[in-house]
Design a binder for these strands. Sequence first.
DNA 1: CTTTAAATCACTAAAAGTTATTTATTGCGA
DNA 2: TCGCAATAAATAACTTTTAGTGATTTAAAG
Lengths: 404, 404
Amino acid sequence: MSETSLNEVAVDGRSRGSNQSGLRAHNERAVLSLIRRHGELAKADIARRTGLSAQTASVIMRSLENESLVIRDQPRRGRVGQPSVPMRLNPDGVLSFGLKIGRRSSELVVMDFVGQIRSNRTIRYTYPRVSDIVAFVERGHKELTAEIAPVLRDRVIGLGVALPFDIWSWAEEIGAPPADVAPWRDFDAEAELSAITGLPVYAANDATAACAAENVFGGSDCANFVYFFIAAFAGGGLVINGDLVQGRLGNAGALGSLPIPRKDGGSGQLIEFASLNRLETAITESDGDPDLILDTEGDWSELSGTLDNWLNEASRGLAYAVLSACSVYDFEDAIIDGAMPRPILDRLVRQTRREYETLNRKGISPVRFRSGNVGVNARSLGAASLPLFARFLLDQRITSGEAG
Amino acid sequence: MSETSLNEVAVDGRSRGSNQSGLRAHNERAVLSLIRRHGELAKADIARRTGLSAQTASVIMRSLENESLVIRDQPRRGRVGQPSVPMRLNPDGVLSFGLKIGRRSSELVVMDFVGQIRSNRTIRYTYPRVSDIVAFVERGHKELTAEIAPVLRDRVIGLGVALPFDIWSWAEEIGAPPADVAPWRDFDAEAELSAITGLPVYAANDATAACAAENVFGGSDCANFVYFFIAAFAGGGLVINGDLVQGRLGNAGALGSLPIPRKDGGSGQLIEFASLNRLETAITESDGDPDLILDTEGDWSELSGTLDNWLNEASRGLAYAVLSACSVYDFEDAIIDGAMPRPILDRLVRQTRREYETLNRKGISPVRFRSGNVGVNARSLGAASLPLFARFLLDQRITSGEAG
DNA sequence: CTTTAAATCACTAAAAGTTATTTATTGCGA
DNA sequence: TCGCAATAAATAACTTTTAGTGATTTAAAG
């Protein structure tokens, strides 16, 4: 390709043309996404399901096998005809780093191609500071890289970062001195962490990343869902046509900002009703121990009444939020996940569904409620999956035209 | 292509593969969309803007010229080098029918390739009945076809229909006997109108269709906007990455159903605040003439206080609706249009912007407000543009991979 | 040993890219 | 003012990449 740094005319972002390598890349992504969703598939299955010809499917699969992205399983006998050879993703095929930055802790993980966390590091704090996080990543990246088998080290394709938007504007809520969180305003995650790790860095909103994890690893077939992740803050994400929707500025699914009608008039943001920050405040006000809710394995039974009140508020807020989201787009599922014990989450989902059914849904298509399948780790896993999206997952964009 | 009606395995809707004709179709759509947006472009411009090679752009343009979809303009001299030959869409290249079904009237139009309405027919009623509409389309299609120059008759590519969702559920609001609107429940627009006209039929929600018109013919460069169309009902549409979002069930942008906080607690749907139905009711209650608002050219000055009250209510509702929509997706523009005089619409937009600025926008990306450029005809125009989407417009789906 | 289905080989078709060439201008120097 | 260099558009000729087709091979069931 020639030098085009001078004389280059802005290419129109909307009406991009495509070429044959784009076509092949698309088909490879389609194949990989399909295998990921089904666990394992024979070449013939892939041809049928993608609509590609058998030959094309065969060629693509062979090349993916050569790149060690897929491996062959035991041939399946028992049916008439030549046995089919199921192919599945090679867990060692690709590795990626994921960094979750939370209100009380951060986590750095190494994830393999099938979504297993291979190893991790955690740091706790009372509130997040840029300098601490950067140091943590620098040390963690070195240590975790050392733990990766040498032959696999060049399989690492990038670092994904899940971080709350506008951390600096939440100084009061998280009890941090404004001066300490101010550096977040100028923090360029892509540039600074890429300099440290030497990896391509992909950043996303934390709840959006969690949504990505639910989409890729949640094991559900639902291709259109609205997703809520309830942690210190409440946020969300969208999946439309099977693709994570990041938004024009990466701020799609800012569901924590949804205006929720108050019972006594006016409105408040969802985050004021449905965040664990809110629960923490309520616990403190009733002289309980707010650190209890950091234990996502416990049963939170000590919280009794305070928890019940929070669940009432949160579920009412979430019900309105789902209603608003479904007015904007006709989602099939509304999925709620969060940094809390499963039984509490399930109560939250049930109660939200009940609240939802009391609301005026005229003109809205029906929606199914369920809790997330990924759970507490969704943000770290989602962060680590961001580099996969960039290379191996269908993110949007299909040339139509029936193949086959 | 071989017979696959038997033995056919469901092709996976998400991970479709693609082929070379899909690639070419994509590139042709990209080229046509680009020309539409820019008015006219030389082949070399197209190559630069799509990222395609000059040769490919040339080949595609020649084939589009052969199909009479584009025509060449006067060569542009005055710059060094061979003069460039700007190409533009051929207005006669494609014709389509559009049917708007409204609460008080329906309209059938013939639209050309550049969005001009060539001719039209209108029918008025107190409420819409399936049998009347069907008869109207049958007669109108015959008459309008007769008005098309014989050589252009086979350029007609389809009929688009813009109709409110769930008409039958609004019997009370539109003052119709439930038995008279019940047939809408079983009305299959695609099948029945296709049988009458012999054309492919594409149906969409009326406000979604209006949004399509704003997107294609609005002349703005904004690729991400939320759109409201205020008529008897209030509805909306979404454009993301330059593409109309229709939704899983065609019910995306059901913005009339958005829950809006009431000042005195609880919530109501946007449509209760911001529809002309609401204004009509208010006029009737204050002993005014509700038919005044059917005159979209008038100045509505007779309505004075009633109109002011409605504008207050409507703009407050719309401000909340924009806030909710922008929490779900970070739109760049919020566009409001409707079946009302321009000056009234502009007041509505200004007041909505002011209301919006009083709301809590923490965590939300900034959004621009403006009134629609298409205006009252948006639904008819949008309906007629639906067949274009099916064939000639980039609707989604780009194979990535930098061409060139 | 026939039928079936997976997988692949050898070849064709379609699309886009590359390089060189043609064409029609402007602009500049003699 | 003429003529030639520079420039940019357009395209012809050819190459490369990709997918599809049809025939063939393989390995199993019945």
